[in-house]
């Protein structure tokens, strides 16, 4: 812009700005085209193979997706995931606070706990719990034909019933991981916050509950969502260690009888995908809730994004490809 001495420079007229806009033919990217075609070809080929492969037996899959056993397995898996995560989160919070305690013995105890449970495979831990459940139980049925699963409802009389064993096994292990996540969250809250709370006369406990933890949630929630999704999948180990009829256990019992291994594993896989997808969706909204008071405007919800995509697709924007010195590099998000 050439400065006009005397007259104060005002913002350029929209018209003149449009006149200066660059109109250029977009650069070509032949390699991108080759790669795109290749990916599309491979995807189609894979889907085709999956559909036509007789081994996958989609008929069995579709017929049994909502089989009573499958549904019960799904419900049990969700229940097991929920209970184990509750144990894990409560225990993890406790351990995290313990680890930050000025008393050496207390922080040391938490450290040893975390060291032990993170240092041994969860599968091995579950085998321990399974053997305890088996020891004190009457007799744990391995020999279950399709109908036998119902039997487990009667095993409440056991000292450690399979569900309790499974929840303890998964929850105690999860507590160790959650402890580190919660601790990271607590440490992420600035010292000024605890000082402000202290200067108002809050005790340590009140400061933790009212000031620190609510803010720590923003850091704690995303990895906890990952943990929950991980837990949902880890429950599949329970079937092999503690005779509790979660989804994988049910499926293995069925194909042990009818030998339709692949289609029944597909049923389980599809259900796991459905469940993890729902959890991912839920996690998103929980994160938004705890982001309140944040400086940034919240990202759009999936629904809002869908609407925006719809609007973008059906409103043609006549704009040149390159709009700035950086060209179209940041065009895509």
């Amino acid at each position: 812009m050439t400065a006009d001495p005397g007259a104060p420079q005002t913002v350029a007229e929209p018209e003149s700005r449009a006149g200066r806009q660059i109109r250029a033919i977009a650069a070509r990217h032949p390699r991108r085209w080759v790669a795109t075609v290749l990916v599309i070809y491979l995807t189609v080929a894979l889907i085709h193979a999956a559909i036509t492969n007789p081994n996958l037996d989609w008929g069995v899959v579709t017929r049994n997706m909502f089989h009573g056993f499958v549904l019960r397995g799904v419900v049990n898996t969700l229940w097991l995931t929920f209970l184990s995560m509750v144990v894990g989160v409560v225990l993890g919070t406790l351990l995290a606070v313990m680890r930050l305690s000025p008393v050496r013995i207390i922080s040391g105890a938490a450290w040893v706990y975390i060291w032990f449970f993170r240092g041994t495979p969860v599968f091995v831990q579950l085998l321990f719990w399974g053997s305890i459940a088996a020891l004190t139980g009457q007799r744990v049925n391995v020999h279950i034909p399709l109908t036998g699963i119902v039997l487990f409802h009667a095993s409440i009389t056991n000292l450690v019933p399979p569900l309790v064993a499974a929840v303890l096994g998964l929850g105690l292990n999860e507590g160790a991981y959650m402890a580190e996540i919660v601790r990271a969250g607590i440490l992420s809250v600035g010292e000024g916050q605890t000082e402000a709370a202290a200067s108002l006369g809050m005790t340590r406990l009140k400061t933790m509950r009212l000031v620190v933890l609510p803010q720590a949630m923003r850091v704690i929630i995303p990895p906890t969502g990952n943990e929950t999704i991980g837990m949902l999948k880890t429950t599949s180990l329970v079937g092999a260690t503690i005779a509790y009829p979660e989804l994988t256990y049910v499926v293995t019992q069925v194909y042990a009888v009818n030998f339709l291994i692949i289609p029944w594993l597909l049923i389980a896989s599809i259900w796991y995908l459905i469940m993890t997808s729902v959890l991912t969706f839920g996690q998103y909204y929980v994160e938004r809730f705890f982001a309140r008071g944040g400086a940034q405007t919240l990202p759009p919800t999936p629904l809002q994004r869908l609407r925006a995509l719809f609007e973008r697709t059906f409103t043609t924007i006549h704009a040149p490809e390159a709009t700035g010195p950086l060209g179209g590099i940041f065009r895509r998000r």
Partner: peptide, 10 residues
């Protein structure tokens, strides 16, 4: 305080 230290979630 110099840095206010308001509770951001309230």
């Amino acid at each position: 305080f110099q840095s206010f230290n308001l509770f951001p979630h309230m």
